[in-house]
Amino acid sequence: MRNKLASSDQLEALRALAPALAATSGHDVGGGRFATGLASLDDHLGGGLGAASLHDLYAGAGGDAPAALGFALGLAWRAAQATGERRPLIWGLDEGSRREIGRPYGPGLAELGLDPERVLLVEVRDAAALLGVGEEALASPAVGAVVLGAWGESKVFSLTASRRLAMAARTAGRTLMLVRAGADPTPGAAETRWRVRAASSAPLEAGAPGHPAVEAALIRHRGGVAPRTWIMEWDREQRSFIAPPPLSGGLVSRPADRAGHASAPGEGLRRAG
């Protein structure tokens, strides 16, 4: 009798878990979506990225880490906005990232149109602590979205860990962006997986670097959406990703621009270090 009771309890628990399990293993991605602002991307993904999901972002190379973090912060900001209240972002960063790309800088956030007062920075030592921060943050109803930045390969990023994070995001109904640099993609439970690279910006007058531009390649989607690559700019005023201006938009960076603003290296050139 007791045994039967216990098993019926377990069954009940299993039933309660079923929808969440379906979400992490199946194709249905519930919990709403948030738009990136880039129409071609949002259309391709059927309205945007899953709001209650884990998204894996891989920097194309170490040097693309700032671009990947910028992309993740922009997306996370939009996800937090989509929750309807002024909920803050939690930004976790491991020691490796801080060593390689420096510490987050408030004025830089403000320059992206992201209010630094609404970002809580959590600096941790290693990947394990970083994942702990992710789970802890998702457990708080006050959090809008979470961005985690990690540097290098680590065994901590296992399939199990990925499933836990995906489940936590699903349960919380919040977005978690896991940004990894200096690491190759590993199997995971993320709804989408991206490879992010810095893209040449559309130059301004006198050949000045333009607005932040990023090349984001969707390399895997749990819903089976076909891989595709987009180049986009970040619009500070709209806090939105937009298509780059037509003239300069393109996959190929154009060294020809250089001649427009700078004279060829010549007499006046000096070396210093």
Partner: peptide, 29 residues
């Protein structure tokens, strides 16, 4: 926080090195 000038790209970086890291550069004097 200082408000960024509209339409200008960010004038301050997202990540800062403290202290700054030395580089070798070739520039026009």
């Amino acid at each position: 926080w200082p408000q960024p000038a509209p339409d200008d790209p960010p004038s301050r970086p997202l990540q800062l090195f403290v202290p700054p890291q030395p580089v070798e550069a070739v520039a026009e004097a």
